[in-house]
Design a binder for these strands. Structure first.
Lengths: 230, 230
DNA sequence: TATCTTTGTTGATAAATATCAATGCAGGAT
DNA sequence: ATCCTGCATTGATATTTATCAACAAAGATA
């Protein structure tokens, strides 16, 4: 198997779009502060509350981004894929990572120094615009989740999670979540027994086909309705 | 009574700190795109989903920032005071306001064109840094709330709201919330009957003194414990 | 003052959700 | 094969929370 020889972030086929606007010099600077790392499934990539010295970019594989609450109760915020920037708001506030990130399957990732990103934020206005757009998108997403989590009942939240996985993560109505029931529950903010029951209900009503671990969305419109109406 | 003659955002005693780094030219530009407005209690200042053409800065009074869910159920995210920037992530994403803002008491506010802010974001790197720091702070705050709302039970959320009001809004352990019970419930994400009962419980246990509408925090350490332990 | 209207409060009840305990099932190790 | 071990599932039950209905209290209006 021939390995692609990645030598910089602009040419990297899985690189973040925001890097496309960098100058040659900036790319070189970036290279000097980029570290590659491989992870097996289930390994910690970023730890919540640890010093936010790096942003992370996946080159392959998927990772879960989650908040650690008290008593090992987690809330999975989103699933990261190659091409996305993973940089929490802590980089510009308390210099701590705002969330934890860990690999779901095998992951190749690049750590890039947060200081360098901040530096380029100041020297390259197009790059700065890309960064603020990305952070705004995240903020927007958090607000959406905040509303869902507080106002929707369990079936609505499960429907939302399924639609998120289908539309934003796997880009297909038929997928293998990679997450186990406990993790799906952590995404929807409920107990694992609850999500099991709701998935069964959806199955019984013919809205999805749940051939564990695979999930196939049959009646997407119905799922959307459940998600919208809470 | 002599009215202060405000002629620009740098000299304004209630202006946002982030404006302090602007050049003379930029301040002038800002002035050309600034509109003052007065509001009586309970009036809409920004409407969720409407075009995000302006950011808002309060010169006096307070406002509630909230998400409108379906079926007139609101979630109050935070309380805005003079000196704070009110600009949602929609300005950099879908160009719609991400939340609604309405006055709690009498409010004087300045609308500032979002385009001008974006322009200065590109031309003044210190200003850009101020904006991203502010947006990061907000993002951080949203993540905190997300975790609280999903993992804490009602008493924990009520304690959190009380501490927020005391520490971040009124800067005193004795205050008049200005929000009625329904609105306090909308902050803590519960029914108004529920918050009434919990406030009474806190009163009975001597943690607070609730002489409606005034609230006085007696045992702050206990309240913090309740908030932390969910 | 008398009458509305809104807001706060309480108790009873229903609905939503979590927890607990038991069981089954599949993959990996011995 | 046989034994583990972790995950999924199910039913029973307890806890949490919302809803409903009634009423009290405080302002607002006439």
């Amino acid at each position: 198997m021939v390995k692609e020889n990645i030598c910089n972030c602009i040419d990297c086929s899985e690189g973040w779009n925001g890097f496309k606007v960098l100058t040659g010099e900036e790319v070189e600077l970036l290279e000097q502060h980029r570290y590659e790392a491989d992870f097996r499934p289930g390994e910690m990539i970023l730890k919540q509350s640890s010093p936010a010295s790096n942003a992370v970019f996946l080159r392959s594989g998927m990772a879960k981004i989650y908040l650690e609450g008290q008593g090992q109760k987690n809330l999975i915020i989103s699933i990261a894929k190659p091409g996305m920037m993973i940089m929490g708001p802590g980089v510009y506030t308390d210099l701590r990572h705002s969330f934890s990130v860990s690999s779901i399957n095998g992951v190749k990732a690049c750590y890039i120094s947060a200081d360098i990103i901040k530096k380029m934020f100041s020297t390259n206005k197009l790059f700065a615009e890309g960064v603020i757009k990305e952070m705004s998108r995240m903020s927007h997403f958090y607000l959406d989740r905040l509303l869902s989590m507080t106002q929707k009942k369990m079936p609505g939240r499960v429907a939302e999670v399924l639609l998120y996985l289908a539309d934003k993560v796997f880009c297909s109505d038929e997928f293998t979540p990679l997450l186990n029931r406990q993790e799906l529950a952590d995404m929807a903010g409920m107990a694992k027994e609850s999500i099991v029951r709701i998935l069964r209900d959806f199955s019984d009503e013919g809205i999805i086909c749940s051939d564990c671990p695979d999930i196939k969305i049959i009646q997407k419109d119905k799922l959307k309705m459940i998600s919208d109406n809470g």
